[in-house]
Every structure is written in C-alpha cells, then in structure tokens.
Write a protein that binds this DNA or RNA. Structure first.
Lengths: 228, 228
DNA sequence: CGTAGTCTTGAGTATCCTCAACGAGGGTGG
DNA sequence: CCACCCTCGTTGAGGATACTCAAGACTACG
C-alpha cells in the first residue's frame, strides 16, 4: 500500500482487525470502481488519487455528484444497490475495499468502526450541503469561485492558497452543472481580475482570497460581467 | 398534540421515555424555529405543516436548503451551532422538540432511538442528493418538472398524482435557484402542454407523468422552448 | 513526432433574470 | 359588509448571461 503520498495526513486508519479485511486496488483514469445500479457489497476508502461519484442520465448526460479525495469513505447506502457509479479521476488512484457486511457487523461492537460510519455519513452531508450552496448560485462566476474556495478548503492541511485541481474541466462542468466553456471563461475572468493565478491549467493559486470570497458569496456585484 | 392531520401516516413515534421529553410548539408562517448560527441544543420533528431549512447569505439572498415535511427530523449536526436556520412555512406548523444531549444519551443504549438518528442522517443524504440532481439540471423547466416529481414522491402514501404544494412560489424559486417568474412560466408552460393541472395555485395534478418524467430527465428535448 | 484528449477563445443564439404592472385572495378595520 | 392593504401569483418587455457550435492552441503519451 502506497503510504508515501503527500495527502497521507488526511488518512485515518482503522483497527488492525478491520484493516486485515481490506484489499487495495489501483485504477486508471476513467476506470469504473463500481457501476451505477450494481449490488452494494463493499465499502471504499480513497488512499490516493481522486474519484468521481456520478450519475449517467437517460439522456446520456453525466452528472458529477461528489468528488472523492484521499481520506474519503464512500459506498455507504441503506439500499442494496448503488444509486450512483464511481469512476477514478486520475491514473494510479488507490482504493481500499472492505466487505460491507463484515464491516457493519464489526461496527456493532467496535465503537471506532461505528464512528467511521457515522463520520462518513455526516461528512457526506456536509459535502452535499456545501455543494448545494455552490451549485445553487445564480452566476457561473459565483459557482466557480465558490468551487475553488471549497477545493482549497479540502486541501487545507498545507498551502491553503495553492493547490492542484485533480479533475478535468469537464468534470468541474458536470459538477457545477454548467458548460465547459463557461468554466474556462469564468477562470479566465478571475485571472484577468488578478483574483487567482493558474499555472498549466491544473495548478491554482488564490491571490485575492477576499475578492474571491466576495464573488462567491455575492453574485450581484456591480457591473460584474465578463462579456463586456 | 394534534394527531388528526391527514399526514399522520408518515409519523413514527419514539419510545414513551423519549416522547416524554418532547415539547410541542405551534409556529406561524415565517416564524423562526431556530436561527442560523444559534446553539444546537435541541432536535426537532415535524408533526404537521411545513418548514424551510434556509441560509441567508451575506448579500441578503435567501437560499432554501431543504423542505421539511411531516415525519422529518431535523436539527442534527456534529457542530455546536446550526449552520442553517429553519422557519415555518405555513401557519399552525407543529414541531416537537427534544433536548439534544438527552436524546443522544438515550441513543447510546436504546437501539430504536439510535436508529432514528441513523435514518434521519441517511434520509437527509437521500433528500440532498435528490435535490442536487434537481438543481443541477440545465433548464428551468427540467428543474421544475423534477421538483414536482420529487414532491409527488414525498406524498406517495396517497394519491401520488395529486398533491398540495405547501410552500410558496418564492420558496420554490429559492429552492431551485431560479427566479419566481421563471417558476411561474415553467408551470404555465407545463399546463399548456397538458402535462399538469394546477387548481388555485397550490394544488397540482400530474396528468402526463411520462411526459413530465421525460422533461425532467432530459432537458434537451427537440424544440422545447416556452418563449416561442 | 503524431495523435488524441484537454483547454481556451470567438460568434451567434436562446434562456433566464430584472423591472414593471396587474389580478387574485386573505386578513383587518371602519 | 365592504373597502383597504398586503402578499402572492401571473404575464409582458427588454437586456444580460450562459449555451451551442466551431476552430485553434496546448499537453500528455505512445
């Protein structure tokens, strides 16, 4: 198991008896970890890399429901089947898998394992609520700004103002419910306002956090338009 | 306690020892049940009526995070303070309140109470994910159609195709992240297409569920525009 | 070095928001 | 009982934002 990744600080390890149940697998970009509608037999834990929880609609559109980063647990459900699919977002993504029934059985007497489940549930709620507030914004710039701030927050362990976006512009667009072009234009506009710097498309640096927060919190800024 | 409401079938009662802790209060439309940022000292349960969990942004905009209907529990948080406020959506809304610490203490040994908390958490996750998929749609008509279907689903105990919208158009607009006028226009357009009937602004009947589902699932319908 | 995928920018169009006005319904007070 | 007020709901007009289509630049990788 590769434990030398720079994001290890987010990881929490389970009791040895549970860790012994784990099998670790490596996935390549775009590879399916589990398919939407499949039986929910295992629980998962991101060790390194990045994964997307997403829904493929009847119309063929892809909707990203959640970005899963190192330390995140996923695959929890009350149902027997997964409502959403999960696919790796970058090559070499390492995922630990635990048999669900066994995991839940242990949770009935091991408080630390039960706590993992509880915290995973509340963590999911927290991410979902944050995402709701991001997506619910009216302007695309507000969405992108809020998204950048939320990503910066999830990398808060080190250099909160400089981080790598592990996902493509397409993933971001599907996550925010706007088009790829609009994501690009919003980023360009933030660059032109000297609010952020972008190095090589994936590395983002927040220059003016107050300004970014203002745009994210308040869509109705006076004369804020990128088109003219 | 008024237990004669037509929505009682959704209610689950707790063990007598826990019910004894409850105090029931009635709220009028717009009245605050708890304020955003206040100390999280109690847990809540909707008996009848309707409530809105909402956030007031720095810019003065109101964002509805969740609609709370009879049977829903709310007020759960891992933090000490409420991130969102909750206000009653209609006059005469009855809310049961339980002291949080006591409730959680009982949950450590009473499985049925612990199950309430667990189910409340998963129920919240489920509602949030549904809401995400609704709000994430690209067209306003898709959002409104999906919203109607989700509301119909929450009243599934009886007459799934005919139900009362307990919230105002403004609440719906804040929930969907679109303007009130757009909500009205989308409803008008659905009426003109004979997809739904609306009686007196609050009573909705789904005429063509397949059509509504198609609009909700698939935004890219051929030539689907209300403006011409 | 070529290819495929990603990222960016431009032009034109359609959707949605804002502003405005009006009708409907409910509550209150004269 | 009716007039009044207030909120809610609906519709119209005009303008701004974001989408679609299109093409070119950049990057990763074999």
């Amino acid at each position: 198991m590769n434990r030398g990744s720079p994001r290890d600080s987010n990881l929490r390890y389970l009791p040895p008896g549970v860790e012994a149940l784990a099998t670790v697998a490596s996935y390549r970009r775009g590879e399916e970890i589990y398919r939407q509608g499949s039986d929910a037999l295992q629980l998962y834990h991101v060790i390194s890399g990045q994964a997307c929880k997403c829904l493929n609609t009847a119309s063929g559109r892809r909707r990203v429901v959640d970005f899963l980063l190192p330390g995140d647990y996923f695959g929890f459900t009350i149902l027997d089947r997964h409502r959403f699919g999960v696919e790796a977002g970058s090559s070499g993504t390492l995922i630990a898998r635990y048999p669900r029934r066994e995991f839940e059985r242990i949770a009935t007497w091991d408080q630390s394992v039960a706590a993992i489940i509880r915290e995973a549930a509340f963590g999911t709620i927290s991410r979902l609520q944050t995402r709701l507030l991001i997506v619910g914004r009216v302007s695309a710039q507000g969405k992108v700004s809020a998204f950048l701030l939320s990503m910066a927050g999830r990398y808060s362990d080190r250099t909160p103002d400089r981080f790598i976006l592990p996902m493509s512009r397409y993933d971001i667009a599907d996550y925010l419910g706007i088009s790829v072009e609009t994501v690009c234009r919003a980023l360009t506009h933030l660059k032109q306002r000297h609010t952020i710097k972008v190095v090589g498309a994936r590395c983002v640096e927040i220059i003016d956090r107050a300004g970014l927060t203002r745009i994210a919190d308040d869509d109705d800024l006076d004369g804020l338009r990128w088109a003219g």
